[in-house]
């Protein structure tokens, strides 16, 4: 290619934006409006929506600020995926449209709706506060400004990528746990918590971790990876979540919380049989009392519907379990060595 920058595609197309509308003052429920405008190649979804607002329907309501992908204001669901409108090309979305020539635009999910494409951000700020998403400096405030902490490049790299987060809440919107439980800590807050916890200048690591292992915390994630897939800054959010979990087990032990015990029970089953012994999993995770109190009614229903998992003695070890156990032992050896190395540093 000689010079791609001088190329200019005059291509123009009619594009329909099917935009979510809701004004709580007049509408009993949300609906969609279609706006069809002529668009040339190279235009972002935000510019198209701004054009509609300025020239077609000034009541269309959305947030936008920097228009350069750094402030995080204009996150919305475009063709059923949360992303920034300002960095999304209309042409790219046309390729993904379910209905030819129609781009669907909706507000973020998992946050209360205010109007059209605008959602309430306060719950996210509240969680940042709840999980102390700030550095609590090891240096007393009176001494600030005199000399730098010395931080190596390796230490910086641990949180470098995590500090790319612009709190656009795309991950919050795509999170499958939040859809079931809005009290869940949420991926962005886990990422920020991780960023604080690996910073050598911070003094509140243990306190933050103690909060993270409680209900609605780090153990509620089901590893669906939607947060990471939707991250507009391509941050490996799941690495951060796994990082917090490993840290929690290392510092607080496996007996500490139901999440850790659940993980341990999983590992035991896999090592012994190569599959799960589901019938006793709740007891091993949460104890007999909790299981009787919370799961007995469901167990009764399961018996009536003949949907109970097989009793433990009937769970036979998988084929080839011997070879697997060997590999498992080897793997565990590596992990143990890694840990030794880490604690020796």
């Amino acid at each position: 290619m000689t010079d791609s920058t001088v190329q200019h595609n005059e291509d123009k197309r009619d594009v329909t934006f099917r935009v979510h509308r809701f004004n709580p003052q007049v509408d009993s429920k949300p609906y969609h409006d279609d706006y069809t405008i002529k668009i040339e190649k190279g235009i972002t979804v935000l510019r198209a929506l701004n054009y509609i607002k300025e020239h077609v329907d000034p009541s269309l309501t959305l947030r936008a600020f920097c228009q350069a992908g750094i402030c995080g204001s204009c996150a919305m669901r475009i063709n059923n995926m949360s992303k920034l409108a300002c960095t999304t090309q209309v042409w790219d979305e046309l390729d993904k449209a379910r209905e030819p020539g129609v781009i669907k635009v909706d507000p973020l999910r998992n946050l209360p709706l205010i109007k059209d494409l605008v959602v309430e951000m306060d719950p996210l700020v509240g969680k940042m506060e709840h999980y102390s998403n700030w550095i609590d400096s090891k240096m007393p405030e009176e001494q600030w400004g005199k000399k730098e902490f010395l931080v190596s490049e390796e230490e910086f790299v641990k949180y470098d990528k995590a500090t790319d987060c612009i709190l656009c809440a795309s991950c919050v919107s795509e999170c499958t746990i939040l859809r079931a439980n809005r009290e869940y800590v949420s991926p962005a807050v886990l990422l920020k918590s991780y960023r604080m916890n690996v910073d050598t200048r911070d003094a509140s690591h243990d306190l933050r971790l103690a909060e993270l292992v409680k209900d609605h915390g780090v153990w509620d994630c089901t590893h669906c990876y939607r947060c990471q897939e939707s991250c507009v800054k391509h941050i490996p959010i799941m690495d951060a979540i796994h990082g917090i979990r490993e840290d929690a087990i290392e510092r607080r032990g496996v007996k500490d919380t139901s999440g850790a015990r659940h993980a341990e029970a999983f590992m035991d089953d896999i090592a012994r049989k190569g599959k799960l012994v589901e019938a006793t999993l709740p007891i091993r995770t949460n104890g007999v009392g909790w299981t009787l109190k919370n799961l007995l009614p469901m167990a009764v229903k399961m018996v009536i519907k003949r949907r109970t998992p097989p009793p433990p003695p009937l769970v036979k070890a998988s084929k080839g379990i011997e070879k697997f156990r060997e590999e498992f032992r080897e793997m565990s050896g590596h992990v143990a060595k890694d840990h030794e190395k880490k604690s020796g540093e």
Partner: peptide, 19 residues
């Protein structure tokens, strides 16, 4: 003073070899 203060309160900075 103010850059060091920012550093002390937790701002991330790129670093030199001498940290």
């Amino acid at each position: 003073k103010i850059i060091r203060e920012l550093e002390n309160m937790g701002t991330p900075w790129s670093r030199l070899d001498d940290r």
